[in-house]
Measured scan of single mutants.
Amino acid sequence: KWTIEEKELFEQGLAKFGRRWTKISKLIGSRTVLQVKSYARQY
């Protein structure tokens, strides 16, 4: 389950980097690239 903080970081990353999942993953820190991709599908 994603925390509110992780969701906010995901949204910031999406706005800043677009669909560059590796960069978003590094920004969040606690999620892998695969987790970020998977979350993006449901987002």
Score class of each variant (00 low, 15 high):
G13W: 13
T22S: 14
G13L: 09
K16T: 10
S38A: 13
E5H: 07
R31S: 02
T3E: 09
L34W: 13
L14C: 04
S30C: 05
K1I: 12
R19L: 12
R31G: 01
I4E: 14
I24Y: 00
T32L: 09
K16P: 01
G18Y: 09
E6D: 06
S25D: 01
R19D: 13
W2C: 02
R41L: 13
Q12N: 08
K26W: 02
V36I: 07
I28L: 10
R19H: 14
K23Q: 13
K37P: 02
F10C: 02
S30E: 06
K26P: 02
W21V: 09
S30Q: 03
Q12V: 10
R20L: 12
R41S: 15
L14W: 13
Y39W: 15
L27M: 12
E11W: 04
I28F: 02
L14P: 04
L9K: 14
F17C: 03
K37H: 04
K26C: 07
W2P: 06
L27D: 02
R20C: 15
A15Y: 08
Q42G: 11
G13S: 04
E11H: 06
V36R: 00
T32V: 01
V36Y: 00
I4R: 05
V36T: 05
W21A: 02
I24C: 03
G29M: 06
G18Q: 08
S38V: 08
S38C: 10
A40Q: 05
R20S: 14
K7D: 02
K7T: 05
K37G: 04
I4Y: 07
K37F: 09
R41T: 13
I4T: 13
S38K: 13
L34Q: 15
G29R: 08
G18L: 10
A40N: 01
Q35L: 07
S25M: 15
V33L: 11
I28Q: 00
A40G: 04
V33E: 11
I28E: 01
Q35P: 04
R31V: 00
L9M: 05
E5W: 00
E6P: 14
L34G: 15
G29Y: 15
Y43D: 08
K1A: 11
S38G: 09
L34E: 15
L14Y: 08
Q12K: 11
V36G: 02
I24Q: 03
G18P: 03
K23N: 08
R41D: 15
R20P: 04
F17K: 02
K16A: 09
Q35C: 01
L9R: 10
T32G: 03
T32N: 12
V33F: 15
V36W: 03
K26F: 01
W2H: 06
F17I: 05
A15V: 11
E5T: 09
G29P: 11
K26E: 14
R19V: 07
S25T: 08
I4Q: 05
Y43N: 11
K16I: 04
L27N: 01
F17G: 04
E8M: 14
Q35A: 13
V36C: 08
L34S: 15
E5K: 13
E11S: 10
Y39C: 03
K7L: 01
R19W: 10
K7R: 09
Q35M: 10
E11C: 07
Q42V: 08
G29C: 08
F17L: 00
R41I: 08
Q35N: 05
K37Q: 12
E6C: 14
R19T: 14
Y39K: 06
S30H: 05
Y43C: 08
T32K: 06
I24M: 03
I24E: 02
K7H: 10
I24T: 02
I4K: 09
Q42T: 12
A40M: 08
I24P: 01
K16Q: 09
E8V: 04
R31P: 00
E11D: 11
Y43E: 12
G13C: 04
Q12C: 07
K1G: 13
W2I: 01
L14D: 08
S25C: 13
Q35W: 12
F10T: 05
W21I: 12
K1N: 14
G29I: 12
S25Q: 08
F17Q: 03
K23C: 11
Y39M: 08
Y43V: 13
T32S: 12
L27A: 09
Y43H: 13
E6T: 03
R41G: 10
K1R: 10
K23G: 02
L27P: 00
K37T: 03
Y39P: 03
G18K: 13
E8A: 12
T3F: 15
E11F: 09
F17Y: 12
A40S: 06
T3K: 03
Y39Q: 04
I28H: 01
S25H: 01
L27W: 11
F10A: 07
K26Q: 11
R20H: 13
F10Q: 05
T3I: 11
A40R: 00
V33T: 13
L34M: 14
V33I: 11
T22H: 13
T22N: 10
Y39D: 02
G29H: 05
L34D: 15
S38N: 14
R31L: 02
K37I: 14
E6A: 15
K26G: 10
L9D: 06
R19F: 11
E5S: 12
R41V: 11
E6H: 04
E5V: 07
L14K: 04
G29A: 09
S25Y: 03
V36L: 09
E6N: 00
S25N: 00
E8Q: 12
G29S: 07
I28G: 00
S25K: 10
K23A: 13
G13N: 00
E11L: 09
S38E: 15
E6F: 15
A15T: 11
S38F: 03
Q35K: 13
T32P: 03
Q42L: 12
Q12I: 07
Y43Q: 15
I24D: 12
T32E: 00
S38R: 10
Q42D: 15
G29N: 00
G13M: 07
F10V: 02
V33M: 13
E6S: 04
Y39L: 12
E6G: 15
T3D: 06
E5F: 00
K7A: 08
K7F: 09
G18F: 14
W2K: 05
L9I: 11
